[in-house]
Structures are given as structure tokens and as C-alpha cells.
């Protein structure tokens, strides 16, 4: 039996069923959140670290979750923020400009044991890695996850119009990458 998000939040607030509710939430969202983060940070180990942080944040924040938004978009927002924070800290730690870190990631894909895409998939990932972070995020959510613009708008706190424009630009850049590379 699958509980609704509202029911899960209610269960979590019951001290005796807190862990049970949390396990149900994790099971409901773990894969979606994992892939959302993974497409952004590319490496499995980094994704795993971020995912653990996301779960800790959910545990701490769910008590005060005001239900102004859906649990689904709230969880996604936490995951997105954690992933972006991680990327920024990684760039600062190595004193690398944005392009260099993304180049490094693109190169590591070829030897990554957890990447099994063909040549075109590899090229597509490299093309995606040339995009600015936010554009990459929008592209992944729309292209791979086929998420609605309205949901994306709530998660990323950006207008639907801006998201459509961002996706359009991202698509053009990727197609141009395929043409020139």
C-alpha cells in the first residue's frame, strides 16, 4: 500500500511512527532523487554523499514542513540545492574555474565504471556538461525526466517562461555541439 505524501507527513509527526514514515518517504523518492542528482554531478560516489545529506535534511526539516508546497517538490528542491552547493564547494576547493571542473568530469566519464552509454550517449553527456549549471539542470529535468514546466517552476523557483527559454537555449547549444565536435 502506498501512502499519499500528506499521509506520510502526518505519520512522520507521530513520534512512534517517525522512522517508519521516513523509510517510506525514502523508498518512495530514493531513485528519482538519486538520478536527479547523478545527472548533475555525474559521479556515483559524489551522488551517494549528496543523497545522504539530502535524507538528513529531510529528516530535520520535515517536522516543520508547512505543506505550502507538495512534499515531492520540496524533496526535489532540497536535492537540487544540495547538488549545486556540492558542485560549488568542489570548484572552490580546487580553485578551478567552472569550465575546467566540467571538463574534468567529461573526461572521467570514459573511464567511469558506472557509465555504460554508447558513443552518442557519451557525446551527449559531454555536450550537457558544457552548459551552465542551471541550464544543465533545466535540460536534465525536461529532457530526461520529462517533468512539467509548472513543477520545475516550483522546484527551481523560476518562471515557466524563463524555464522554456532556458531549455530552448540548452537544446540549441547541444545541437551545435554535435555539429561542431
Amino acid at each position: 500500500m502506498e501512502y499519499s505524501d500528506q499521509k506520510l507527513v502526518q505519520l512522520f509527526r507521530d513520534e512512534h511512527r517517525k522512522e517508519e514514515a521516513f523509510t517510506l518517504i525514502v523508498n518512495k523518492y530514493k531513485e528519482k532523487i538519486y538520478w536527479h542528482i547523478r545527472k548533475l554531478v555525474i559521479l556515483h560516489d559524489d551522488t551517494d554523499d549528496i543523497l545522504q545529506n539530502v535524507f538528513v535534511r529531510i529528516w530535520k526539516g520535515l517536522e516543520n514542513f508547512r505543506e505550502d508546497s507538495q512534499l515531492y517538490t520540496w524533496v526535489y528542491r532540497i536535492a537540487t540545492n544540495e547538488a549545486l552547493t556540492f558542485l560549488n564547494s568542489k570548484k572552490k576547493r580546487f580553485f578551478l574555474p567552472i569550465v575546467d571542473y566540467e571538463n574534468q568530469l567529461a573526461n572521467s566519464l570514459e573511464s567511469d565504471a558506472y557509465f555504460n552509454g554508447d558513443e552518442i550517449q557519451l557525446k551527449l553527456q559531454k555536450a550537457i556538461l558544457t552548459l551552465p549549471e542551471k541550464q544543465r539542470l533545466v535540460f536534465n529535468m525536461k529532457y530526461f525526466d520529462e517533468m512539467k514546466y509548472e513543477d520545475m517552476s516550483e522546484i527551481l523557483d523560476t518562471s515557466v517562461g524563463a524555464l522554456k527559454a532556458s531549455y530552448h537555449h540548452a537544446t540549441k547549444k547541444i545541437e551545435k555541439f554535435f555539429e561542431t565536435d
Binding site: 556515483h44 558506472y114 557509465f115 550517449q121 557519451l122 545541437e175
Partner: peptide
């Protein structure tokens, strides 16, 4: 120009075996 529609939309990444099975326990 190569259109994105012509590229097969698949997930090229994978996880270690049974990674998701113990995730809630680890969390």
C-alpha cells in the same frame, strides 16, 4: 545539424549492484 529527437533517450549511468536496496537503512 543533429536533432536531439534522433538520439535515443536512455539513462547511460548505472549504480553498484543492489545499491537502492539498503539505501533507507543507510539513510
Amino acid at each position: 545539424m543533429k536533432k536531439l529527437d534522433n538520439i535515443e533517450k536512455t539513462n547511460p549511468f548505472k549504480t553498484p549492484e543492489a545499491y537502492f536496496d539498503k539505501l533507507s537503512e543507510r539513510a
